[in-house]
Nucleic acid binder design. Structure first.
Length: 497
DNA sequence: TTAGGGTTAG
């Protein structure tokens, strides 16, 4: 077990894989007078990320300021995206690069950095960056505000989000119908349709609300399974002289399915046909998925076949929806048949497709098979995302295969895809199952690492580990955990921008 | 990043 602890120590720091990857990038960064900057390849972002994660502030600062890397907004954005689950490091990198003698950040990089800071709930940094953006005449733009308001809403501060939206112009960003609709959508997607509707009523004249505004609100009510309210909103829309579109119908169709009103959905679909409504791939995907989720696989298959007969081409999303419902309500074997069929027709599955299939395989205990598909993703040049890793880790944990789940975790740490809050929570919980003191040590290490990466563990998690450590007489380590806890929610001074 | 379909457990 001590092996496990020491292995965890090495994650992202000095594993062999990492060191090998670092070499080339490190060379690029430390060479002081290269004849010309070497052209950057696809993998440079990955290599640079590992380097950024490895170096301390001082060394990183020295390296970033050399002229040997040809920084481009694209490269910087790639790095910021890869470091998404290591917010403090991402911001440190962004801040250091701001001092670069030649390179200056782009609008999109500022937006990424603002998103990261907002996710860390470091609002002081958010506004500092907004001000800096403005000073450099790079923004802030409507997208910047979409990011900020969305983060406030998901942090449980919708009122603050409303105030921010209403104050956009004070930051030099004009409000218009687009930004209004975007903000309504942010509220609706967080299941605050009622709040969005109230705001809509107040501002609809000022912004000249259009079909999109109404569709957003209707969809918001559908998301909280309130189809009658959605229909009311649409009635209001027609009364104000706006015509529903195919998107409107698709929203309602999906709303019926979401609310479990399968009969209504079917009737609505028939009515659309009767009225000779032009249907599209979204209509059919909604039907296939809706029927499938409610367990009506035959109906789902029938609609899928009908779609092909009508000459509407399924999309990757259609196949994904079908594969998912087959996994859930039929058999994973049949899902694989459809998956292979999709490949034969020349479609390239994306990470969502792999995700549903891998989840399906995990669910029936076919872990080896799931791992095979994880490897197949690479062949398809499809990067596995953190959700896929989380599914595999979760199921390994559920099966009591703690070592295997740690192996997958290590694979993530060695640069493939950084773990997120869920990953840590899943693993830490699993460390209590076997009631072994060495598992508890791993849990502690994970907790410290996640705090270091800007995640805020629940109090419960801290207490659980602290209690365990105190019971096993591990006072020193408990102190370390306490230090991590006090650090939580506050970024160290050098992260301040 | 102006709206609709596909990932996610209870």
């Amino acid at each position: 077990m001590i092996g496990n602890v020491s292995r965890l120590h090495t994650i992202n720091r000095s594993s062999v894989v990492c060191s090998l990857k670092f070499k080339s990038s490190f060379h690029n960064l430390t060479t002081t007078t290269p004849p010309s900057p070497p052209p950057l390849e696809e993998d440079d972002a990955a290599g640079l990320c590992n380097l950024i994660l490895k170096l301390d502030l001082q060394t990183l600062s020295e390296n970033l300021e050399t002229n040997s890397v040809c920084w481009t907004p694209d490269l910087v954005n790639k790095i910021l995206k890869r470091l998404w689950n290591h917010g403090p490091k991402a911001l440190e990198f962004f801040r250091l690069l701001e001092r670069h003698p030649i390179y200056t950040h782009s609008t999109t990089s500022f937006d990424h950095a603002i998103d990261i800071a907002a996710r860390l709930r470091d609002y002081k940094t958010v506004w500092t960056l907004v001000a800096r953006m403005r000073k450099r005449r790079l923004g802030p733009n409507p997208k910047t505000f979409a990011i900020i308001t969305e983060r406030f809403v998901s942090a449980g501060k919708p009122d603050k989000a409303v105030r921010v939206f209403l104050s956009m112009h004070e930051h030099g960003c004009q409000q218009d119908l687009n930004s209004f609709n975007t903000f309504l959508d942010v509220l609706c997607k967080s299941k605050r349709a009622e709040m969005a509707y109230n705001l809509f009523k107040v501002l609809k004249r000022r912004f000249k609300a259009d079909t999109i505004s109404y569709n957003i609100i209707a969809n918001g009510f559908c998301l909280i399974k309130r189809t009658p309210r959605a229909l009311e909103v649409l009635r209001e829309m027609v009364e104000s002289g706006l015509e529903p579109t195919l998107k409107t119908y698709n929203i309602i169709l999906n709303g019926y399915f979401k609310a479990g009103q399968i009969k209504e959905a079917w009737q609505f679909f028939l009515e659309m046909k009767r009225r000779k409504c032009v249907m599209d791939v979204v209509t059919y995907t909604t039907m296939v998925h809706g029927f499938g989720v409610s367990g009506e696989i035959q109906k789902a298959r029938q609609v899928f076949d009908e779609m092909l007969e009508t000459g509407i081409l399924p999309s990757v999303a259609t196949y994904t929806a079908f594969i998912q419902v087959l996994c859930k309500k039929d058999t994973v074997e049949n899902a694989i048949v459809v998956f292979e069929e999709m490949l034969k027709k020349g479609y390239t599955p994306n990470s969502t497709t792999y995700s549903v299939l891998i989840r399906g395989l995990c669910h029936v205990g076919k872990m080896d098979n799931a791992m095979e598909y994880l490897d197949r993703m690479k062949q398809d040049e499809c990067e596995p995302n953190v959700q896929i890793f989380n599914v595999i880790i979760r199921y390994y944990c559920d099966e009591g295969e703690i070592e295997k789940s740690l192996e997958v975790f290590e694979r993530m740490g060695s640069g493939e895809c950084l773990p997120n809050l869920d990953t840590y929570n899943i693993l830490i919980s699993a460390m209590f199952v076997r009631k072994r003191s060495d598992d508890l040590m791993v849990a502690g290490k994970l907790l410290i690492e996640m705090v270091d990466r800007g995640f805020v563990p629940r109090k419960f998690t801290f207490n659980r580990i602290l209690n365990g450590l105190l019971l096993t007489g591990n006072q020193d380590f408990a102190q370390e955990i306490l230090r991590a806890q006090s650090k939580c929610g506050r970024l160290p001074r050098h992260f301040r921008l």
